[in-house]
Amino acid sequence: MVKQLFIIITLVFLVIMLLPLMTEVKPFEDLSLVSQKYVNAGPDELGSQNLVTAVVVTYRGLDTLGEVAVLFIATAGIGFFLRKKAVEEKDMKSKASVLVRTGTALLLPLILLLGVYIFLHGHLTPGGGFQGGVVIASGILLLMLAQSDIKINISLLYWIESLSGAFYVIIGILGLALAGGFLDNRFLPLGDFGRLFSAGAIPIIYSLIGLKVGAELVGILNNMQRSQ
């Protein structure tokens, strides 16, 4: 039982390490200075209502680019490891019930529309590219569950994914050339605060992120399903 003892000691140290979060970090009375700058300057500077979107897309845009790259690498790894088996076994696919198939035909357009709505309105309402992409991926997942013999067009996914990634970087460089810095959204007019076509390039960037995330997650699910 030496192993158990070691585990318990490790966990006790972890708790001691995290304990200052409970006792010493007082609940914030006010925003930190960085956040204060973002909150005060964000709406006027970038024209985005949703400040989380402003931070994700513009102020911390480089981080988001990195995270999308991590997502791409993980997807590529999954595709690499699950690729082989896909060709040989394609029998014994059972069909879903009539209820599921009819419900899917009814719901799928609405789910896709909701996904597009979420990432187009990322700068106005809660939500954005990541959430919209995930909603689209869940819609496609429903389709894959209802009709298990369906073939997802891999080359279409590939093109959506790589084109949106490329345009994301191109827009970042346009920001560098025409406005203040990499991924700066102000090279397009900011427009009226609170309208759909406002906040410069933020809706475009977030739509590209949404397409990219959606295509990547559909790729993960497709690989997982085809390997069954």
């Binding site: 956040s35 909150v39 400040l51 994700v56 988001t64």
Partner: peptide, 12 residues
């Protein structure tokens, strides 16, 4: 409003 930075970090 609350701090937007932790939300943005956790989101990704």
């Amino acid at each position: 409003v609350i701090d937007p930075v932790p939300s943005a970090l956790v989101l990704t």
